[in-house]
Simulated scan of single mutants.
Amino acid sequence: MAQNNRAKTLRALHQPGNALLLTNVHDAATASLIASLPTAAAIATASYAIAASIGVDDNALTKSQNLTAIAAIASAVRAINPAKPLTVDLQDGYGDTAQLADTIKQVIALGAVGCNIEDMDAAGVLRSVGEAAQRVETVVKAAAEAGVPDFVVNARTDVLGAGGTIDQAIERGKAFLEAGACTVFVWGGPSGRGVSSEEIRRLVCALGGMVNVKMNLREGFLGVKEIRELGVARISVGPELWKIAMKAFTDQAESLLAL
């Protein structure tokens, strides 16, 4: 009951126009820092940063490695503020339908009340709309069976990165929401294509505002205020804080070594 209450809390934080801001973490230390901040309403992991922190590429991160990191993060959050909801990045969900359901039950057992799941498989192949939506349904069903019927699914589509159009992203988003997703995360892909303000407006209009946007913490990109004004329900930063931290670490180390 307590865990599903945290899921309800997380779900309620997704308000179009008053977007939930998630400052993604990657280990127990960063989770402890964010959990201790009164202004951080929830905790979210970033698979890219988790992978980088253990020395592997994002696409090489295994389920076992990710769950080990999630377990440490969940423990750190419980120690600081057990009431704060935790949502975790599960990449493509790791395997077939049965394996996906098992993964969801495992992360719920660790304390998660939400997840990201992608529609591109581990081999880099974009799943069909029907298959991807069915996997969202699998997540929702598995979570309900595990006692968290309000589990929050942030369904990511990589269709733009695969050369698709915003219309295709909308089609997938509608299917994901109908399958039980709370929000739809439309990613611009690794090439840096990005998602324009006008495209975000179209997504917000078509998907009732239940859209997740990744914010870039660099010059020339929209800030929190500007993105919220577009009407989205969720803003995440992915590995951006990890990148900033690693740059500061490198710069300081170089300065010391130059003495």
Rank of each mutant, 00 (worst) to 15 (best):
S128A: 07
G220K: 04
P16H: 08
A71P: 02
C182N: 12
L217F: 11
N116L: 01
K214R: 14
P82M: 04
A19R: 02
D119E: 04
D121R: 05
T23P: 00
A19L: 08
D92I: 00
V113P: 11
W187F: 15
A132L: 10
A109S: 14
L177A: 13
A112D: 04
L222D: 15
I34L: 15
G223T: 11
R193D: 06
I73K: 03
S236F: 00
N18R: 14
E137D: 09
Q91Y: 01
E171Q: 15
L20G: 10
A35F: 13
R218S: 11
Q168D: 12
L110M: 07
G192F: 00
L21T: 12
S36N: 15
A76I: 01
E131N: 05
N5R: 13
N216D: 08
A72D: 12
G180Q: 07
G220Y: 05
S197Q: 14
Q252Y: 05
G114N: 02
T87M: 14
F221L: 02
V113Y: 07
A52I: 03
R234A: 07
T45C: 07
I166K: 12
L100T: 08
A112L: 01
L203T: 03
A179Q: 08
A12S: 15
G130A: 14
R6I: 09
V88H: 03
S255C: 08
A245N: 06
T157H: 12
A52W: 05
S32V: 03
I80R: 11
A98N: 04
A42Y: 09
D150Y: 08
A51Y: 02
A51E: 09
Q3I: 15
F176P: 12
A44F: 00
T138K: 06
A12N: 13
I34V: 15
D57C: 00
A7W: 10
A49K: 02
R11H: 12
G114P: 00
F221N: 06
A79D: 05
D92K: 02
N4L: 11
T62K: 08
Y48W: 09
M246I: 01
V56E: 02
P16A: 12
A142F: 06
Q65V: 03
A133F: 07
L230Y: 09
M210R: 15
D27P: 01
L203E: 02
E229C: 03
I50P: 09
A98V: 10
M120W: 04
A31M: 03
D102V: 01
G114Q: 00
L177S: 14
R234V: 02
M1Q: 10
E118D: 09
F221P: 03
D58R: 02
N154Q: 11
R172N: 10
T45K: 04
G231Q: 03
L230A: 08
A35H: 10
R172F: 11
T68V: 00
A71R: 12
D167S: 15
N116F: 10
A46C: 13
V140T: 13
E145N: 09
L10W: 07
A143P: 12
P149N: 13
K105S: 07
L22E: 06
Q168C: 09
L126A: 08
T157K: 14
A146Y: 13
N24P: 06
V107A: 01
V195S: 03
I200W: 05
G55F: 00
G147I: 06
S236Q: 05
I73P: 01
A52K: 14
